[in-house]
Write a protein that binds this DNA or RNA. Structure first.
Lengths: 221, 221
DNA sequence: AATATAATTTAGGACAACCTAAATATTTTC
DNA sequence: GAAAATATTTAGGTTGTCCTAAATTATATT
């Protein structure tokens, strides 16, 4: 399996997980490739039995395709955590590195890194790491922007794509495991007043969309 | 700079260092590519001012080409040592991994690994690691097969290409830094009787060709 | 020095992954 | 439900890296 195909499969998996339906255009945008090129590649992936593809209807991974996608995602997330722990790479940088390393990691090194880390369950952004058999545990979680005040929540995962966002969250002390209190929401722009430790902060909807939380508990103010 | 070009430049550097003249065929053999394809690529590299190329006359790196080659080699050797030290990867496996990782290592990670290792001077096989400016310190050394008995020598470097050879040398306890005594050479096949610690072993010419030594001291038996 | 052998290059082509522009299908809007 | 807007596919083309077979040049042999 080469880099290009791995990237397509991983992207399809990711869009499916976050957006639902996987369209040609969505893939094209993420991979920064013209839609016409994506169509061609989807036909090839279908021929290889890695996706189910019907013209104009979007695309779905077959179990073979999903298997490969999960392997790449496992690589990605193990590498992210390894870089963070072994080399102290800040959490806003690990994603970009892992994007490249994931494609050159042998099974042998995957195992060694996994052992070195003690078979971790999540990466530095809180995303679950699939096991060797491609089994992934996705605990139920909602976007912070969906939570209604007044509630207490625990951060489960944050989006890893934008380094700036991650540096901002780091400054706010928002990490997986951090407990937050949603104080109130401004209806106009859906910005959110949130208590983080002792601080009260206002987070824009752009930010609250990128934070997934669990253990939502309604509080009576 | 992409993978392919980096591999060509690195290979040219390597052939120059070990064999002297760099021919089309030699490159083709190492890269497992047809000679005709190499000719085409050499023209391209010449257009890019990375090599000096004259038909039928072989090829030489320009300083720009050498710079890139040394960067890749630095990556390669840092990665080899890092894998060996951080993840305990045995020395016969690190080369194959590094062949892939060297092309995806960012400057930032290169620096972090270098710092983690304490700016090492040599890789697990004894090969010198170029510094960030592309300066490489090649101490004078000769192949073990060139040494005349009776001499004491110190192993400087061993070939890293063949995992089987490395496992064999490991079993014999021959590592960079190991001291050896050349007892005698059989003229027929140039096999060599060598003292390693307490043991006396006979090494074939195939093996003694792959071991470079320094500090050759004649002994009067 | 002529010839045989080996190395190298030229010519022409394959293939993967991308592109743009034009055509067609689907979805949205009125 | 027709028209407009959007999404998708088709057609044709480009680029990079490789290939084989044939032609050429260099080297070795007698």
């Amino acid at each position: 399996m080469n880099r290009v195909i791995e990237d397509y499969l991983k992207t399809i998996y990711d869009i499916h997980a976050t957006e639902g339906k996987v369209t040609t255009t969505a893939i094209a945008q993420r991979l920064k490739i013209a839609p016409a090129s994506v169509t061609g590649m989807l036909k090839k992936l279908a021929r290889m039995n890695l996706v189910q593809y019907e013209k104009y209807q979007g695309v779905r991974l077959t179990s073979a395709g999903e298997q490969i996608a999960l392997e790449v995602i496992r690589h990605h997330r193990l590498i992210e955590l390894f870089l963070a722990q072994a080399l102290n790479v800040p959490w806003d940088q690990v994603h970009e590195e892992a994007e490249k390393w994931e494609h050159v990691l042998s099974e042998e090194m995957e195992d060694r890194i996994d052992r070195w880390l003690g078979s971790p369950k999540t990466d530095p952004h809180g995303a679950p790491i699939p096991d060797k058999n491609g089994h992934i545990e996705e605990p139920p979680k909602v976007r912070l922007c969906e939570v209604v005040p007044v509630s207490r929540v625990v951060v489960a995962e944050v989006s890893d794509h934008d380094p700036e966002l991650l540096r901002y969250l780091g400054k706010l002390n928002v990490y997986p495991g951090t407990s937050l209190e949603v104080v109130q929401v401004e209806p106009f722009d859906r910005s959110m007043e949130v208590r983080i430790g002792e601080q009260i902060r206002v987070l824009s909807a752009l930010v609250t969309r990128c934070i997934w939380v669990t253990d939502v508990q309604a509080l009576d103010a």
